[in-house]
Amino acid sequence: MNRQTGLRWLSVLSFVAVWWLGSLVSSPEILPGPLVIGRTILTNFTTTTGPEEKSAAFHVAITLARILFSFSVAMILGIAVGLAIGLRRKVELAFGYLISLALTIPTLLAVFLCVIWFGFSEAGGLFAVILTVTPFVAVNMIAGAKALDKELIDMAHAFNARRGLLVRKVLVWQLMPYIFSAFRYAFGMTWKIVALAESFGLKYGIGYMFTFWFEQFNMAQVMAWVMLFVAIMLVIEHGVIARFEAKIFAWRPAHAV
């Protein structure tokens, strides 16, 4: 373990320590300690207590599937729209303002609107994500398209590179930093919106369980589900995305992830 990872673990450990100290001075109905929460999470996975008689693994899988699906749709749409706007002046004139408009919609309102339009259905959650996440991805891709290095494109043309080669070896790599920053941001937004939609009315999922226990005033369960959610998202962001990023950007001399 190097110094940097050591420091990261230290910050996580000190958070748990503060939490534990807090739980000592307050009642378990207000702030249950880390041990209680850890045990609750374990029990949730091994038994099928709770409103729908499903184990935690089921709810986690449902939430992850919702996140993954709506996130992929929003990413693909955002990249396509962003590149079209960034590369074509006419498309920019036609749709540029719509993107700015969409960016101003508060996330919470988007979720409300989609619940009104689609009811408490999967489509509602999906459209809330598309409505709020797509414009952010698009804005990043517009910036990426505008920053493409004309000198490198000229170089490729001077060597007679065909379109496919140009896209694969010259353009995609230049867009990569923009795709990644969009990716991170979009992922963060998506899981928050999905959790919100689940607590509003979607059946099953981590957010659903969170609301259920909240209405029962069961603080240990509420915190167990929040902590589980946070832990999963942290692992995905830092374990999966960051590792992938480090590999892709190995060519940069001092890339700080």
Partner: peptide, 16 residues
């Protein structure tokens, strides 16, 4: 192309 190795930069021209 800074994201390609020296070798792959030359191969880029060869492929083109």
């Amino acid at each position: 192309l800074n994201w390609l190795t020296v070798e792959d930069n030359i191969k880029f021209a060869l492929e083109a």
